[in-house]
Design a protein around this nucleic acid. Sequence first.
DNA 1: CACCCTCGAGTTCA
DNA 2: CTCGAGGGTG
Length: 694
Amino acid sequence: MNDIPTFDQALAESASLTERILEAQAAYYERNESIIADAEYDTLMRRLEELESAYPQLQGQDSPTLNVGGMANSTFAPVTHAERMMSLDNVFSAEQFIAWTDRILKDSGRMPEFLCELKIDGLAINLRYENGRLVSAATRGDGVVGEDVTANVKTISGIPHTLAGDGHPPVVEVRGEIFFPVAAFRKLNTELADDGEKVFANPRNAASGSLRQKDATKTAKRPLRMLVHGIGAWADIPVTSQSQVYELLASWGLPTSDRYRAVDSAHAALSFIDEMGEKRESVEHEIDGIVIKVNEIALQRELGVTSRAPRWAIAYKYPPEQVNTKLVDIRVSVGRTGRATPYAVVEPVKVAGSTVEYATLHNQDVVKAKGVLIGDTIVIRKAGDVIPEVLGPVLGLRDGSERPFVMPTGCPECGAALRPMSEDDVDLRCPNARGCPAQVRGRVEHIGSRGGLDIEGLGEVAAAALTNHIDGQVPPLETEANLFALTLDDLLAVDFFRNKDGGPSKAALELLANLEVAKTKPLWRILVSFNIRHVGPVAARALADYFGSVDAIRRASVDELAAVDGVGVIIVESLRDWFSVDWHEEIVREWAAAGVQLATPGHEGPGAVTEIEGPCSGLTIVATGTLEGYTRDGAQEAIIAAGGKPASSVSKKTDFVAAGPGAGSKLTKAEELGIPVIDAAGFTRLLEGGPSAV
DNA sequence: CACCCTCGAGTTCA
DNA sequence: CTCGAGGGTG
């Protein structure tokens, strides 16, 4: 049975499967009787797993699939909860949420106050206090019977062994969530990986693994945390609202979250949901949604519960960062260096805000390592919230029609035989550097890019228009050698640069004007535009500063080149290789002939570079995020002008990190290393007055 | 020679 | 942003 229904069908089906499985489990574990055959139980379980792998958001933490094997092979003693641990019903959209609030409205006759809180993606735990002393801690299990993890839970800091204050009933059960803080989880995984051990798939698994240690001293070493969010039945509870429950729990010394908000309309609840959705990443624990509860306790009692969930609360589940989609095809693209890169073509799907159609697979080894077949259902996520990444296939959804990817032997664009360029190169490359349209296009685009000559009007589309061979016609550019010799007539031969009336398009005029401007750009940009392997902005700058002209670099000896800071044997080799190719010589010749400035005016010739003296001399500064008043490149230039060194990554050697809104991992790293972080205003002060001005 | 710091290259979508 | 690899340093 491999047919996968739509989300709505899957939702309904998984709910009914879950119910039947839980019933069977309850009968088995509580009353020791089998109400369905083992084989049928297995079938239900497998089907549920299948649905959950197609729609991961269906897998709530109380899903029976997370408790495979039940208590049978557990090393922890079973504990029967005094009161059943309920789960929550889920909604997946604003519409479904409104439908839920409408029902509350209908059932109660008024729109109540709601309490919104984060739904922690951790492990549900029940703490039992007798006369104020913690006597038992148990996992949820199937809701009725859980596992006794008291010894382990007692090692978690922040969980009181004795309740503070008084006024607690003789026996009280407190419900909450144990989680592994995200930052600590990353650190743990790095350490595990360094030691060659298996890493945890996510913080919840890490929490689960850490809690279920036989040896509680191991649990103690893991930085688990807990937040409580509920209290078991208590007939004459001395408070009237859910928010007061939290105050009460906090007054007993229990850890409660401060990220909750009481709202008086469904609309306001949705705002909270949206707001937290955006802040999702900045919370210390993973959240998979928002829990909305009716705040008034009297009304909670009035609304009551169904067999498995209260009617007075609901979980709004965020769309997952990981989604499943179909791998339609694996194709191969060739970049400016000739490298042949396989990429996944997938059925378009929304992930973390944007629709993904393509995802790189890097090279054939990666395709093999990921184990994906064309036709597979695969799991996709956004790495760093931007770049789609294929995680792997959903094996349970294969039906036999999938086929493996075969790396082509020829270049998809020019047909030349692909081969590794050196002996231990895993990448296959198209050897036809001069004639392969894909490579010429890629190089021309690189010349126009921001890191290159920054030519507006020479982007992806224009580069393609200039280099595409259509119906065997010779394009305006055969190689980049002629780029600066382009005339209006050359451009008018291509549709892209013509208006409807046959005249030159705005793009054509813009390109010609900007090519003219580019001719006098700094020497390092020219070097970057040569597309010499291993020579990017930093190496190009070092070379340009030291030698001052293309000619001086070409004539320099190996030793002279290697004397430049940041240039080693590999880069030297690469430079000499480049200059020894005759059609590269032609690029230099033609560009010079077209008036491109191949030397820095006023440069004294090869020699040590005099350091710029400035307020930031000797400082290494990293700029990240959006700094008001600076462009990305502008910030770099400003650092150099002030005598500082702009770096692209944060390390112990970094002196300052200038971070604006949108800063990501570099900011985190800076905080980890205790490096001073400054904002845009501080950055300006630093540039003008040096470190003491900050 | 083993590390750590950087850089280069490829990457997607709005 | 991430990965792999070049360059420099102890």
